[in-house]
Design a protein around this nucleic acid. Structure first.
Lengths: 188, 188, 188, 188
DNA sequence: CATGAATGAGTTTTCATTCAT
DNA sequence: AATGAATGAAAACTCATTCAT
C-alpha cells in the first residue's frame, strides 16, 4: 500500500519532533508503524531520505500557505495579518512538523539553502514589498527577525503552556501587535 | 592539568554547536583536544556530563549577566536596554555557547526545568516588574515571546550574515526598537 | 512463459559475470529481466538453483563441444586443433558463460566434483590418448596445465583488448603453437 | 599491539582465499583473530580497506620478487628461469595470497588498473626485452598468455593434488619447458 | 504467472565506555 | 593523568525468501 509510506512519514515526524532526529532509530519508526526495519527500506533508501522528504514537504507547505495569504488579500494590513494567521495556524495544527523544521534548521543549516521556497524567504519578500510601499518602519531584515522570532516563540510558549488563551485570540493579538509595532509604531 | 578539563569543555562546545550533540562523538572531542578517548573519562564520567556541565555553565552565566544588568541600573529604560545589550553581547561573544543552549532546549526540553536561574526566567521576572510599574503595554508572557524571539533571531541573522552592520549598532537599534514597541508604542 | 525462465538465466549470467555471484542480488536479476523478485521464485526455488543450473548448462555444453571435436576427426593433430578451436570459439561467443564458469570454480571448488563431464576432464582424457600414442612430450597433467592455462589467458587478454587481431587468427596461432610445443617441440 | 593488525590481515587473507571475499564476514575475521567485530574497526576503516590493503601488499610483493629475479641475473635464460622460479615459489609459499590476488582480479577488474607494479606488467616488460633481443618466437602478449596461464594452472593443479612431484622438480620442469617452447622451439 | 509488500536473519559499521599498562 | 586496545550493545542497512492478492 502507498499508505504505508505515508504512515512511515507521519510516525517518523512525530518521533523526530519529540526525541530528535539522531535519537530516533529506524527501529523506533518501524515499531511505531507496526512493520519491521527492513520494510522501511522498501519505501525509502535511507533514514536520511525520510528526513529530507519531511523537510521538503512541510517546509514547502508552509511556504505555500504564506504565499497564498499574501496573494489573496489586497490590503497590506490584511495581507500581513493573514500571513501571521497562516503561519501560526500551521504551527498550531502541525506542531511536530513545525518543531521538526526548526530542528532541521539547527542541525543542517548548510543544507537548507538547497531548498527553494523556504518560509523565511517568502516572508522576506513580502516584507520587502511593504518596505517598498513605505509602510515598514524598520529595515526589512530586522523586521524579519522580529516577525519570525516572535511567531516562533509564541508557538513555543503556547505549546509549553506558558502563553494561555485560545488560539484565535493569540493569533489575533499577535498579528495586531506586530502590525502596530512594525508599521504604525511611532508614526503618530 | 585542570587546563585539559577546560579544553575538553571548549572543544566539545564548539563541536556540539557546529554538528549537534549526538552527531559529535567522544572521539571527535578527544581528537580536537589532542588526547585519546580514554583520557576524556579521567575528567568526566560520561559524555552527558560534559553536555550538562556546558549547559549549566553558560546558561547560568547568561542569567547572571542579565541579573546584573537589571540590578545595576535604576531607570527602567536603562535596565531594559542593558538587558538587551547583555543578552546580545553574550550571544555575539559566545556564539557556540548560545547555539548550544538553544539546541539543548530543543532536544532536552523535559530536563531544562531542573536548572534554576534560566535566562528566560530572569528576563520574565524583569518584565513582570515592568508590568507591575504599568510600563508594559502587553501581557508579560507575550512580551517575553517578542523579546526573546527577536533577540534570538537577531543573533541568528547576524551570524548568518543576513543582518549587516556593526554589533554596537545592531544592539542599539534592537534595544531601542523593542523598548518603543513594548513600552511606548501606541501610548502617544 | 518458458521464455521468462530463459531470460532470467541469461540476465543472471550476465550479471554474475560482470559483478560476481554474491554481489548480484535477486533484485538485480529481477530488474534486468523486467519482473519482480517474487516472480523469479515461480521459475526457480532459490538463487543458488540459478547458479547451479547455469554452471551445469554451460559447463556441459563446453564439454560436449570438445568431445565432438575429438570424435569427429581422425588425425590427432586435427583433433587437437579442433579442440582448441571449439574451446576458444565457445569462450569468445559466450564470454559471460566462460567467465562465470571460472568464477564458480574459484568460489565453489568443493562442489565442482559433483558435476560429470567437466571440460577439464574431457580435455584430460584426450591428452591421455595422445600420451598413449607417444605424441605428448610432457606428462598428461602438465600438458593439461599448459593447454587450459594458455587458452584461458588468451581469452582473457583478447577480452581485455591486450591481444589484438581477428579471432580466427588468434585461434589458429594458438592451436598451431600449442601443438608444436606440446607434441613436436624438441623432437627434431 | 601492532601485531593485531597483522593478525587481522593474515586471517582475513586465509578466509578470503578459502571462502571468497563477500562470503567472509567481518565477524568471521574477528572470531578467527579472537577479538570482537568492533575491534577490527580500530585497525581498519572498513572491510574493503582490508581487501585493498591485502591486494596491494601481496601484489607488489610478487612484483618485486619478479623484478629482482630479472635484475639479478645477466644471462637471459637464467633471468627467465629465475622469474618462473620466483613466481611459482611465491605461489606455493603463499597459496592464500596467490588465490586471493586471482579472486580480486576476477571481481574487481575495473579497479586493478589503479595499482602500479602489477606482476603481469613486470613480466610483460621482461618479455618485451626478450623480444627485443630476438629471443622470443612469439609476439609478446601471446607469450605472456602462455607463460602466466601455465604458471597459474601449474599452481592450481599442484594445490589440488593433480600435479604430483616435489615443488623443486615442478618448478624446474616448468621453467625449462616454457623456455624451450617460447624461445628455442622450432629453432633448431 | 506475476505483483508488491513484508519478513527475519544477517551484514557492516558506529560509538560510549572500560581497562590493563 | 594518559594511552591504546578492546568491548558490547545498538545503529543503519541488505537481501534471499515468503505470501496474500
Amino acid at each position: 500500500m502507498a499508505k504505508t509510506r505515508e504512515t512511515i512519514l507521519d510516525e517518523a515526524l512525530r518521533l523526530f519532533a519529540s526525541k530528535g532526529i539522531r535519537e530516533t532509530t529506524v527501529r523506533d519508526i518501524a515499531r511505531a508503524v507496526g512493520i519491521t526495519e527492513g520494510a522501511i527500506y522498501r519505501h525509502f533508501n535511507s533514514k536520511d531520505q525520510i528526513v529530507l522528504e519531511l523537510f521538503k514537504q512541510y517546509s514547502s507547505e508552509l511556504s505555500e500557505r504564506i504565499e497564498r495569504a499574501v496573494n489573496s488579500q489586497q490590503n497590506s494590513e490584511e495581507q500581513f495579518r493573514s500571513v501571521v494567521e497562516q503561519f501560526l495556524t500551521f504551527a498550531f495544527n502541525n506542531p511536530d512538523a513545525f518543531k521538526f523544521i526548526n530542528i532541521f534548521h539547527y542541525l543542517r543549516s548548510s543544507e537548507v539553502g538547497k531548498f527553494r521556497r523556504l518560509p523565511a524567504g517568502v516572508i522576506r519578500k513580502f516584507l520587502e514589498d511593504l518596505k517598498g510601499k513605505g509602510l515598514l518602519i524598520e529595515d526589512t531584515d530586522f523586521a524579519l527577525a522580529v516577525l519570525i522570532g516572535t511567531l516562533e516563540r509564541v508557538f513555543l510558549y503556547k505549546t509549553m503552556g506558558i502563553l494561555r488563551g485560545r488560539r484565535k485570540e493569540i493569533i489575533n493579538r499577535t498579528s495586531e501587535n506586530l502590525w502596530n509595532y512594525l508599521v504604525k509604531c511611532g508614526k503618530s
